[in-house]
Write a protein that binds this DNA or RNA. Structure first.
Lengths: 352, 352
DNA sequence: TGCCATCGTCGATGCGCTTCGACAGCCTTC
DNA sequence: GAAGGCTGTCGAAGCGCATCGACGATGGCA
């Protein structure tokens, strides 16, 4: 292993000088700097992370707590992680991955072992048991999502309330009078996952404002669940012409099933999806979406973390405004679709 | 911060004794052990990771290099990461996330900064530029995938060659005589990604063995690409009755498009998918699959890593046997399907 | 020419831990 | 009853680095 002493010897200076060249915390003459930098390069020197952490109480590691249930919005999580790790590296930090499964104790451990300098926590629930603990810790913490009582913690997320409203507004403006929300799986609501309830609130509020008839169903992402969900919705509201889908995993199944039922998108039914923009084009009909800006959120989360590490102590809450992009899956409703409930020829799931 | 000295004082012993209680490297009297453990618990003591790393040259961190392109098999990567982090934690290790984008230099950095004890590398290419460097490093390394010259590195992966053969064999045994492979996007082949070429080899070999007419097309995962790909395949082989899909991202689009064309699955065309088992049921027709055992691979990768860390120096190559599960998307081909090329009513993409 | 301020560099110290050799007390064994 | 071997504990050293005070050299100014 090559140490700071080796570099110092090679450059003919003291170890502390090398340290100052690296950190830039004291001024160094150009000559010395060049000498040292050359030795560093020549020897391939990298400071020992442990030693550095011990001496400086900084690890240059960010811990990220992610939900690793595969039932969730995998693509969103991946996109977020990708963006976070990239942003972290841009700030010369590494990313340590923790799972939500380990619970609050893991956070405690990471904090008191000085494994990371800060924590970023995804998939926050309304009354998340980790929140009190996170507040007690005295590491910088950034939540992705907004719990009921974030007291003192920074938060960043898409403004799901506004997103819910935007979806309704879009459909209402196109002239739809009866719409429905197909939400995340019941388990997500049961956990009180922050974004699900916030979206629902926005959806409901806007439905009232726009005087639109609105139903709403959580939906697991098996094909059967999707199908049953549509059965329910169409039975309860035969005049349904607009669908807001806040559950990217069901999209393929949903579109398939609509076709089965002889419901054309957007002629017979309009669909607004809440999902990463990258998914909009993966479907037979390019989807009108409110984008989930996972990448942006990831970058912001890291940026907020770095600000806290740099000494900005005031917590911030950043809610990113929703961006709706109209594509081919929404249009004004047709006053009368003669063949609405006609099935195509291949299967038998017909809503009478 | 609570240190080992605090614990020692509280327990009335020397710091080294506390250390030995924790590590178990020397025998300790039951009385002392109890005393110390109690103090640890009472004070909430966690050893300082940096100090520990410095003194023992072990970080208890595993670095995992993942491809973070969103165009890739996101679900597989997630599943793998989830399983790896869980397995690592079970061995009292944490997981550091690196991206493939950072290239070989990042591996160098991690190794010589002593940030991690071992490296696990996903998405290995046939002539991966990182391989020579990894060999030169003297950390334990486990590759997920098999490069052309793994000399000295451990590898673990699904046996994609056998998987390719298994798909063909299944279709051949059902009686199909003309099949096609829809592979990962061209970019994946261009990179020489190990699993893509291995799968193709198995596919081709088995096609010869079983005397089956076989075509093959890489396919990007936009709906257009899928559609074009099917156009090509059907034009070139109008008698096509079997499809092997080694590209989970195109599945929804593909199934949709087949329906558009009036091709029923499995009556008119059988589909074998290579994807995580969890995805099999997300489609209107439950898919016959060869499972990508991402979870198993992740667990094995960690286990192999831990073995190397424990002193097992001989590298191993583990190829997991493929497991084909027949579901509803494959059957014997119908000798004659009158309406094969009939389109359904909603769109116009008809193959004449 | 002499004095002080500034700049650039050096040595020493300590971060919290592991580990090694030392050693006190005890039990065995002839 | 003395010699030797264990067992359990201790103290000290050192891992590689950051940081602080000290200090020599240099330049400006009177």
């Amino acid at each position: 292993m090559v140490t700071i002493n080796d570099v110092a010897t090679a450059a003919g200076v003291a170890p502390s000088t090398v340290s100052y060249v690296i950190s830039g915390k004291r001024s160094i003459s150009p000559k010395t700097r060049r000498l040292v930098e050359e030795s560093i390069r020549k020897l391939g020197y990298h400071p020992h992370a442990g030693a550095r952490a011990l001496a400086s109480s900084k690890t240059n590691v960010l811990a990220l707590v992610v939900p690793l249930r595969t039932d969730l919005n995998v693509a969103v999580v991946m996109e977020f992680v990708a963006s976070a790790v990239t942003a972290a590296r841009a700030h010369d930090h590494d990313l340590l991955l923790l799972t939500k499964d380990e619970g609050p104790a893991a956070l405690q451990r990471v904090a008191s072992s000085a494994i990371a300098d800060a924590l970023m926590v995804m998939d926050v629930e309304a009354a998340d048991p980790r929140v009190p603990m996170l507040i007690a810790l005295d590491l910088p913490v950034v939540l992705i999502g907004v719990p009921d009582h974030p007291a003192g913690l920074s938060c960043v997320d898409l403004d799901f309330t506004a997103a819910g409203s935007a979806c309704v507004a879009h459909l209402a403006e196109l002239g739809h009078r009866s719409i429905a929300l197909i939400g995340p799986s019941p388990a997500v609501y049961r956990r009180g996952t922050s974004y699900a309830t916030r979206f629902l609130r926005g959806f409901d509020d806007a439905a009232k404002t726009h005087d639109v008839r609105a139903a709403n169903r959580p939906c697991a992402h098996s094909y059967e669940a999707v199908s049953a969900c549509l059965d329910d919705l169409l039975a309860a509201a035969p005049d349904l012409t607009g669908l807001v889908v806040h559950n990217e995993a069901v999209l393929p199944g949903l579109l398939s099933d609509l076709r089965h039922r002889g419901l054309r998108v957007p002629e017979d039914i309009s669909v607004v999806a809440v999902c990463p923009d990258s998914m909009a084009e993966h479907h037979p009909v390019a989807l009108t979406t409110v984008a989930i800006p996972a990448e942006e959120v990831g970058a912001q989360a890291v940026e907020m973390t770095m600000r806290r590490l740099a000494g900005h102590t005031t917590p911030e809450v950043r809610l990113l405004g929703p961006r709706l992009t109209q594509r081919d899956s929404t249009s004004a409703p047709r006053p009368c679709s003669a063949d609405r409930y006609q099935s195509d020829h291949s299967h038998g799931r017909i809503v009478p």
